[in-house]
Write a protein that binds this DNA or RNA. Structure first.
Lengths: 248, 248
DNA sequence: TCAAAAGTGTTCTTATTACACCCATGG
DNA sequence: CCATGGGTGTAATAAGAACACTTTTGA
């Protein structure tokens, strides 16, 4: 089959966009590159796929090697293949994304990663390669996902308050939601278990704590599901950019 | 940069899933391969990406070369990269899809395509490589798309009846819809222009003809949009497989 | 005059929106 | 006693679902 030889001179990588939520805003996990090209620059954790390795497996392995994150569920988003996106030759990259609870995982930089650190999405400046564009595409995907699946499950700690959950939705959708309508909707889904516990040590009325009902959540995933909630008109949010996240 | 040399030994292809609608069911454009591997087998129109060619451009070029289709809008769906999916070596493929009016285009097989022909999706058996899986993934994407965008525009001839439009939706969603509710919904969108013409030569009351209002359609795309309509309970459809198309 | 598909409205139910005040706690 | 965020209900509106008969044509 050597009539194809000229085509077998390219490479592909995987890049992972890992989202977390903390201190009221969305974070993304970045590494500081310790290897050329773009040595010293912040980048998405990604690397070459081995010759005999499936894409999904490669994404998992690379993520683990660079950041110490293991057992993370990764979903393919899109492939980026501009001709000159990599200085070493023709390299296309398959982007993966995931949502995790920041507190559940210890970040441990290694391999070509000098550092690995959570960054506020809003404050991410330029990144190595075309990683800024990849990050943006994955964030759009997340906006779509939050309307199609109860995403808090993946992002919040085991116990959380309804206000925390609402803040998460607001951070992802870049909008503000009406408190009462949000609670009515989310509680009517019966995905939350009221723990009959409350916050302690807060300088205001302590909030009830909830956890996700994993079984009901699985049911939902199985039968399809849609989360829709219009932003409230009461408080207009200057951060808001797009009324409806388009996919992809 | 020759520390990466071992990685630059793979190739990538693009595969196109072109959907059309005719005689009441969904079709996909396939080629009969005139080249090994899988010579003589039906396959999606796809081929290797050139070393200095963007992915999107490659998809367009390859589609044109194999089937004669030019000026088709293609959208990336997903990348397939199982290790042994191609016998010639490590080859991952980026899948693209499109919707076209069958009557608007002349199919002209050439290059490695012995033939190019529309096939009813329901009757597609096995295909070369992992193309059956790719087709299925793209059809799922189409199911999602039809709820997010008024898709008839791309698939129907310039003049069509409301019943034809309804049949299109039913074919994509693999369900049946209530006639009155469908008409109410689709007309309330104000995307259709009533041409004040009727069918001729049909052995029943002739239907009114409509065309899409291209300007309003662009507005809709710009501001986001959602088409939802539950299947009617009156007539249960045995073909129906999944209540809610999941994406991707 | 029959077969075949076109065309048309109403009622019921459910989901969404808008909106304002009192409550519990720590400092 | 004050500042802070927690918690709650209702009325008005809009959207969706169910459902059956009459009309127009060609054969």
């Amino acid at each position: 089959m050597n009539e194809f030889n000229e085509y077998f001179k390219s490479a592909f990588t995987v890049d992972n966009v890992i989202f977390g939520f903390d201190e009221g805003d969305m974070k993304v996990l970045l590494i500081k590159r310790g290897e050329e090209p773009y040595k010293g620059k912040w980048a998405l954790p990604g690397y070459f796929v081995n010759p005999a390795e499936d894409l999904d497996a490669a994404a998992k392995r690379v993520l683990g090697e660079l950041t110490g994150l293991r057992n993370v569920y990764l979903e393919q988003v899109r492939t980026f293949g501009a001709v000159n996106r990599h200085p070493a030759g023709r390299v296309i990259t398959v982007a993966y994304f995931s949502l995790i609870k920041i507190s559940d995982y210890a970040i441990q930089a290694s391999s070509i990663a000098q550092k690995a650190k959570w960054h506020s999405i809003a404050r991410v400046k330029d990144l190595a390669f075309d990683h800024k564009e990849i990050l943006q595409a994955c964030f759009n995907r997340l906006k779509w996902l939050v309307r199609a699946r109860p995403v808090g499950f993946e992002l919040l700690p085991p116990k959380f308050t309804l206000t925390e959950l609402q803040h998460l939705y607001e951070a992802i959708l870049e909008t503000e939601l009406d408190k009462r309508n949000f609670r009515k909707k989310i509680l009517s889904m019966n995905l939350l278990i009221d723990l009959d516990e409350t916050q302690e040590g807060v300088a205001h009325r302590p909030a009830r704590l909830y956890q996700f009902d994993k079984e009901k959540y699985e049911e939902f995933l199985a039968e399809g599901f849609s989360f829709e909630l219009k932003e409230s008109k009461k408080k207009e949010n200057p951060l808001r950019k797009n009324a409806s996240p388009s996919f992809p």
